[in-house]
């Protein structure tokens, strides 16, 4: 019987490393989906722990909406340089230019939904058979049901009624040609776990996660960054506020919260006391009760 006393973060970390190594062992052409957000940054650290001093057995893949926070792209490029790993960028702008998708119109237009097409095209172009993502089950109720190895058909679709049983710590990555598997190593982590891990590991994050002064507008009760990528009209009042972002996605669908949290410790205590869930700041989930389920069925992350 083991005397070694595992802290919960050690346990979550060991589980995630095990999953990443299963991906390396079971697939021919895996990829790690990197958004520049804290969850995918955590995945990168876990990959270092799983494979160093060797190279990662997969490239990093960024699905770039073109509507980014500058700070995120800057962070991404510095990180890739430090790691010495390969970065592949799938561009939503290119999908638009090629006429594969059409930009949404109107006040609440966002490129979030368009990402799915670019993602699926990138998967097909590079023949990826497994895509590692940073989704967590505590984020949203459809995600709470998804397996760690989640099989997608040729069209990237998730079929929640036909999920494979997933037993013990045995992951079945067998697929037919054309299918791929989305793999979620931090499925069992909560938002707070991710922050506690980032603090423990002393991981650098893009600055937009911390309180800063920014021009914002209020849209449907949410604070949105005033940027050229958000369609504004005369009704929108631009105000300067001290804010930070809790999740990092497309600039047009990620809301900020008013915050004074400059340090990780401040953020952890802010989240511990928060009464709003992380995805409460995502306009994309507000559409309907089954918004995430429907997007996943369509091939979304």
């Amino acid at each position: 019987m083991s005397k070694y006393n595992f802290d919960y973060l050690d346990e979550l970390e060991a589980e995630a490393i095990h999953i990443l190594r299963e991906v390396a062992g079971q697939f021919e052409k895996p990829a790690l989906l990197f958004s520049g957000g804290k969850d995918s940054i955590t995945l990168v650290r876990l990959a270092e722990k799983a494979f160093r001093p060797g190279k990662f057995p997969f490239p990093l893949v960024h699905i770039d909406t073109g509507h980014n926070f500058e700070e995120t792209i800057d962070y991404r490029d510095r990180m890739v340089a430090r790691l010495g790993e390969r970065l592949i960028v799938g561009s939503v702008q290119q999908s638009i230019d090629e006429g594969k998708v059409v930009e949404q119109k109107g006040k609440n237009a966002s490129r979030n939904a368009l990402q799915t097409v670019t993602l699926l095209d990138t998967i097909e172009k590079h023949q990826f058979d497994a895509c590692i993502g940073g989704a967590r089950r505590d984020e949203e109720k459809a995600r709470a049901k998804e397996r760690i190895f989640s099989v997608r058909d040729e069209f990237g679709q998730w079929d929640p009624k036909r999920q494979r049983p997933e037993l013990w710590n045995v992951y079945n990555g067998k697929i037919h040609k054309g299918e791929n598997v989305r793999v979620f190593p931090i499925s069992n982590w909560t938002e707070l776990d991710v922050w506690n891990y980032i603090r423990r590991e002393n991981i650098e994050l893009p600055s937009i996660y911390f309180a800063h002064d920014r021009d914002v507008i209020t849209r449907n009760g949410q604070l949105m960054a005033a940027s050229p990528y958000v369609n504004m009209d005369e009704d929108d009042v631009v105000e300067r506020k001290k804010v930070r972002f809790r999740t990092v996605g497309d600039i047009s669908c990620t809301a900020a919260i008013e915050s004074d949290a400059f340090l990780i410790d401040d953020i952890i205590s802010e989240i511990s006391q928060s009464k709003i869930s992380e995805r409460g700041a995502r306009m994309d989930d507000k559409v309907s009760e089954a918004a995430m389920e429907d997007r996943k069925k369509g091939g979304y992350f």
Partner: peptide, 9 residues
């Protein structure tokens, strides 16, 4: 129908 995972502390 299927297993849902929930987290609290």
């Amino acid at each position: 129908i299927d297993v849902a995972y929930k987290y609290f502390q």
